[in-house]
Nucleic acid binder design. Structure first.
Lengths: 142, 142
DNA sequence: AATCTACATTATAATAATTCTAAACTATTG
DNA sequence: CAATAGTTTAGAATTATTATAATGTAGATT
């Protein structure tokens, strides 16, 4: 979703009613310069603290999953027990900072196109994603 | 850990006492032809059903984490809310079958070496892993 | 081989993330 | 502006995991 677009229209386009909770969540998620990586907990905090918007936890879960299903959010796999989401829904790779637990997007140019030589009969490739784990240079490796 | 090796010795080597629970878990995990991918739940089931070994859930968690810390197991990132582990602890890539939720190892030859051009100041790369999601050919894409 | 002690195991309680439920609410349709 | 189908909500339920504290045991010491 582009920044400062008509969120009401964008929600209607995919068959989601533009409730005030959903529109507010769109503003928080998409009105930013860079793509946003977050956990549900991050988002709830942001909504309540920064926007003093009291949206029920269940609604945040519902909405994030609705946005994901409609292609407005993407879930990212990290080995924690939390789900991370990304407002950049295009196929792209990530760095994960193991010190700060922050996700960083990779540009197209950062990693060459991955060539998969393996083929599994009857299965098609849905996505190919690289996760690069980084950590502070001056510390013992995990 | 190699198949049919001296598990008692292997445990002692890394400072873990070879208790009967740990040795039994070694047998279940490492006495196989191919590498084994599992969740804690899979492992508990295997231990109780196939081996009729009643090992407490807490011990399974403790032991899996102990084995991981000592480099005998590796955690794999999948977007589920469960942790997946792999008896193959070398750096390697995976296929994830979204239909069956099964993990499949990639051979060295399946994917070219990944070249990372991005550099984050003060951070070193700990690992680079590719996850290829596959699904049945004749179904609507997720 | 009996004893000691630090490490392990265990059942159970606690916590954390997420999902479910069912009642109250609201955006849209007619 | 009433009907209704989709939403929101608080709170309960569920699931995965970790903590606790009592009991058990491997390996060292006598």
């Amino acid at each position: 979703m582009p920044k400062n677009c008509n969120f009401i229209e964008k929600l209607r386009e995919v068959g989601l009613r533009p409730t005030k909770q959903r529109v507010k969540m769109c503003e928080v998620l998409y009105n930013r310069e860079k793509t946003f990586h977050f956990t549900i907990n991050d988002l709830v905090k942001l909504l309540s603290e920064k926007m003093n918007q009291k949206i029920s936890l269940a609604t945040v879960y519902n909405t994030v999953h609705a946005f994901e299903k409609k292609g407005y959010l993407k879930e990212i796999s990290i080995d924690s027990h939390k789900s991370y989401f990304d407002t950049n829904t295009s196929a792209h790779h990530h760095f994960f900072d193991e010190d700060t637990h922050e996700l960083i997007d990779c540009d197209e140019s950062d990693i060459d196109k991955i060539n998969i030589r393996k083929n599994i009969t009857g299965k098609k490739i849905n996505s190919v994603e690289v996760l690069v784990r980084v950590a502070s240079d001056n510390q013992t490796q995990k």
